[in-house]
């Protein structure tokens, strides 16, 4: 059995790019993404798992990157907001947030978009109640949430319409 240590080599795929780095074992995954890889789209709010601003996908599952160590992402595949869309080509969820006033200051938005992405990929035709439940783990102090819920609803309806027209 190996010995415990304070530094460890990890290999992690982020937004399709493989990175190999040696990290302090106490580095949070959120800090690794922001400081080591310069991917500052993942925001750090509370650092105690409550606010949801640091939500990312790990092997396709939405998780809090502030409650995960960078070493725990070794050998895994991570998707951050930078991997969802770009300023030139917004993801439909991002487009819907823009069109429906789903953001004001934008601090919480990456977390909301990632949560919505994970949620809609599992439940593409949600009820209002399900949308509210799915977004309840993300905090927004600007919008009052109505615009965010409207955005997710709009993109779900759009995706449904596209799916229907594709099958015709």
């Amino acid at each position: 059995m190996a010995e415990a240590g304070v530094r460890k080599k990890i290999s992690v795929t982020v937004n399709g790019v493989k990175y190999e780095r040696e990290v302090n074992v106490r580095t949070l995954l959120s800090d690794f993404l922001r400081r080591e890889l310069g991917l500052t789209g993942t925001h750090v709010g509370c650092e105690q798992g409550v606010c949801g601003a640091c939500t990312i996908l790990i092997d396709g599952q939405a998780i809090r990157s502030c409650l995960t160590l960078a070493v725990q992402a070794d050998g895994r595949s991570v998707t951050t907001i930078e991997g969802i869309g770009s300023p030139e080509q917004l993801h439909p969820i991002q487009q819907a947030f823009w069109e429906n006033h789903g953001l004001q200051c934008g601090f919480c938005t990456p977390g909301f978009v990632i949560s919505a992405y994970a949620f809609l990929s599992e439940n593409p035709n949600p009820t209002d109640e399900e949308i509210r439940e799915a977004l309840s783990g993300n905090l927004c102090r600007c919008t009052g949430y109505q615009g965010i819920i409207k955005s997710v609803k709009a993109v779900a309806e759009k995706m449904q319409a596209t799916a229907v027209s594709n099958t015709k």
């Binding site: 059995m1 190996a2 010995e3 240590g5 074992v25 106490r26 949070l28 800090d31 650092e47």
Partner: peptide, 8 residues
Amino acid sequence: KPAPFEYL
């Protein structure tokens, strides 16, 4: 951030 620790 967490205080220093060793990890295995």
